[in-house]
Design a protein around this nucleic acid. Structure first.
Lengths: 231, 231
DNA sequence: CCGATGCTTCGGTGGACGCCGAAGCATCGG
DNA sequence: CCGATGCTTCGGCGTCCACCGAAGCATCGG
């Protein structure tokens, strides 16, 4: 097993609290400077520098220097998916810790998960599409039904995804809700579509998404989603 | 970030060569004894015992005792997927190591990947279904086309998957071939179907699959797949 | 040219953990 | 009842590595 050592090396990289904190801070796809990441992880810049060098050497993050800043971002969506898997198993491991995921109510309501929407809103959207039989979701795979393909195209979702029949889909188990939401191209298309129409807005300096009044109207009309009673 | 520590703990578990070797040995879904796992990892039984206790405490593996043996298996498909992600990034990190994956030619030709088929055969099957426009595969999601649903049902694949329209699908990047193969329920159905019809047989004590003469005939007739020239 | 800012490298310290030998419990076979 | 097998716990050793202070380079603003 030659490759085993490599696998363990990657594992060891995500086995340190400081490094994981930095990677999680990058999970929305933004690029952050070394100092920002150091602060996110609660360590000094010189320690962070060492960690970032390791992450870059293993191609988990990429660096681009601009002036005296060095911007770091996740090297690929695969890294984001690795972190997803990790967070999933982490909360499973904390046996019956009822309060899963982040505490910030904004984050719990709606947030980005790399390129798609997660949180309460993400799960509601997934449920709505499943209820309409546009999509089937299993733990381990998703299926967009023929009807769903037509309806989603009629909504203009295919434009955001690059044309008809490009709405590949995959389930992504929601970190805070512990139920699947939509990822893959369909999930990404839903997210960009919602951002373009002004249904949701990125909350600066965070992965949280704010739902606008227009957004609540649209989600209600299209998917019968109302603001939750108890946030 | 309360949960961060948990995430790092799981990461640390997959950051040790011995533990990763044991988890990889479990990746085909079989249950193995502590001694077998110790041998697979190249460590003494007492060391393995400690590792397995940690893995069990974190719910990455489950244990069931039978007589004086204790059988260990992966606790859930999510663990298998975590390892997939890890192996993927690990081979990426090994910059331009041309020879990816295992060296055993049997493993490279065909093997199980938890519940579906991987290796050369798995990738060929995926390519064939994509070429027939039954399936679309993207890096980050899959789509079974309406035509594909009908054709796969006609082959009897839905029976193995539990009924019509239960052929949810997801892509899984092949470890040795570095190209996607089919996972999810469709992938699992293809695998059980092939096993039931005697097209492939499990090679005992390994994740490798042997393709039978009948299998080569079937794969050729249905998907125009022939044995590779250079194994 | 100079100080300030962002980031890195270097050295030394401390804690964590993987490893094995030895010994202790269970279970099976006879 | 006995020895053999499978697995675990315990203790001590060795190593690795995250951490920070201090110092060294780059870049920006003036």
């Amino acid at each position: 097993m030659v490759t085993t050592v490599s696998v363990a090396q990657v594992g060891a990289l995500v086995g340190d609290p400081a490094r994981v904190a930095m990677l999680q801070a990058l999970m929305d796809g933004r690029a952050l400077t070394a100092s920002e990441l150091a602060q996110a992880a609660g360590i000094t810049p010189q320690t962070a520098s060492g960690h970032l060098a390791q992450l870059a050497a293993a191609s988990l993050v990429t660096v681009s220097k601009q002036g005296r800043h060095r911007y770091h971002r996740l090297a690929s969506p695969e890294v984001a998916r690795l972190l997803e898997s990790l967070m999933l198993l982490a909360s499973n491991a904390a046996v019956r810790r009822p309060r899963t995921g982040p505490r910030d109510p904004h984050l719990r309501l709606a947030r980005t998960c790399y390129d798609h929407m997660a949180g309460w809103l993400g799960v509601q959207l997934a449920d709505a599409l499943v209820a309409r039989n546009w999509v089937e979701l299993a733990e381990d795979g998703a299926l967009v039904t023929p009807e769903g393909l037509n309806r989603l195209a009629a909504l203009g979702l295919d434009a955001a995804a690059g044309g008809r029949a490009k709405l590949q889909c995959r389930p992504c188990l929601d970190w805070s809700e512990r139920r699947p939401h939509l990822a893959g191209r369909l999930g990404a298309a839903l997210c960009t579509h919602s951002l373009q129409r002004g249904w949701v807005r990125r909350q600066s300096g965070s992965r949280a998404l704010n739902v606008t009044p227009a957004g609540w109207r649209a989600f209600h009309e299209l998917f019968d989603i109302r603001p939750p009673a108890a946030p």
